[in-house]
Amino acid sequence: MPRFSESLTMPEPRKFGAFDRDADLEVRQRDLPRWFQAGVAIFITFRTIDSMPRDVVSGWHADIKRWLKENGIQCDSERLPEANALPMRLRNEYSKVRDRGWQERLDECHGECVLKRTECAKIVADALRHFDGDRYDLASFIVMPNHVHLIAQFRRGFSLSRQSESWLRFSATRINRLSNRAGAFWQAEPFDHLIRSEAQFWYLMNYIRDNPGNAGVKMDDIAYYNVFE
Rank of each mutant, 00 (worst) to 15 (best):
I151E: 03
H147W: 01
L106Q: 03
R135D: 09
I73V: 15
S95G: 03
S159M: 05
C113M: 07
A85R: 14
I151Y: 07
D137H: 15
C109Y: 03
N84G: 04
D107A: 01
L80H: 01
D132Q: 10
R135I: 09
G101E: 00
L86Y: 09
A121S: 11
A152L: 12
G157A: 05
S140T: 12
W102G: 00
R135G: 14
D134V: 15
L150R: 06
R117W: 02
R91K: 10
Y94D: 01
M144T: 07
R89S: 14
I142Y: 07
R98Y: 00
H130E: 15
A139L: 10
S159E: 10
G72D: 04
C113W: 05
E112V: 08
D99V: 02
V124H: 10
L106C: 08
A125C: 07
E104V: 02
E78S: 14
V97C: 02
G133W: 08
L90C: 06
H149L: 06
V124F: 05
R117L: 10
I123S: 10
R156P: 05
S140K: 09
H147I: 00
H110C: 02
W102M: 01
K116P: 02
A127C: 15
R156T: 14
L106S: 04
C75G: 03
P81E: 05
Q153E: 14
R91M: 13
K122A: 14
S140G: 11
A127Y: 10
Q103L: 03
I123K: 14
Q103S: 04
L115I: 08
E93W: 07
I151K: 04
Q74C: 07
E78P: 09
G101N: 02
R105I: 00
K96I: 08
R98D: 00
H149N: 06
G157R: 05
P81G: 03
L90R: 07
H110V: 02
L106M: 15
D107G: 03
L150I: 05
F131E: 12
L128T: 14
M144P: 07
C75M: 05
R156Q: 12
Q74S: 13
K122F: 09
C120R: 13
